[in-house]
Design a protein around this nucleic acid. Structure first.
Lengths: 118, 118
DNA sequence: CACCGATATGTTTCTCGTGACATAACGGTA
DNA sequence: TACCGTTATGTCACGAGAAACATATCGGTG
């Protein structure tokens, strides 16, 4: 198997408030599944935890990233707002740009790893 | 004051084994101070924790990043090995490259933050 | 040989985050 | 009105990880 070496990008908005791979995956999950609960399940995460992450994200942007509704025909659900779509798109783009920018250096670093690590 | 928004880069070598800002700062501290204890103090970190991080890093590369010695005229100390210097240099460079690559997107993201966050 | 400051390592204590569980509300449908 | 699946929220117990504390060792110097 190829090496698992990868980079992870975390954007720190405030001390203790950041957006990283986890929150981005939640946004993506909400977009794909239409519900916070299903997004959480897909990641093996409790609904409560997923909801907590959504609440945090909604709080630190000007407008909510996720709009949730209860009851109704669909038994409730959640969708990304335009801002939510934009944040997700920007984050994924930053991930890609970062990975591309450091690819060469990363290969150099990988050469120094112990044999067990690749 | 200007916004604290920033990016952080974490390189994941193995699941649960990574190098991020903390370990890089330790390497830098050892290089600057000549001891693990002083590097830890400078970061407000216990010697034990600093030493643990060094041990982990030394274990997952082909050669140690930090060479420590006990006793002697200088009462012991630690220095970066050539490999340690290289890892630090590469990591700092990756940080810089990543930050530069995402700068524009980051500004875009920042505009979406709530007023409290800038 | 006592002392120094650093490395090296074990043990114990505590804290915080997490998981697990419980409950209520919502607004549709059968 | 009973039921559905979801959102929304509270409480509590537990465990992993960190802090705190305790030694032992090293190899020089006074």
């Amino acid at each position: 198997m190829p090496s698992k070496t990868q980079s992870r990008l975390r954007i720190v908005l405030e001390p203790d408030i950041a957006i990283g791979p986890g929150k981005a995956d939640i946004l993506e999950g909400v977009r794909d599944t239409g519900s916070i609960a299903a997004a959480g399940r897909r990641m093996g995460m409790s609904y409560k935890r997923a909801w907590l992450l959504v609440e945090t994200m909604n709080a630190c942007f000007k407008e909510p990233l996720v709009a949730a509704s209860r009851g109704g025909k669909s038994h409730g659900g959640a969708v990304l707002t335009p801002v939510g779509e934009e944040v997700l798109r920007r984050y994924r783009r930053m991930e890609a740009l970062s990975a591309k920018a450091i690819a060469a250096e990363l290969r150099g670093l990988k050469r120094l790893l112990s044999d067990m690590s690749n």
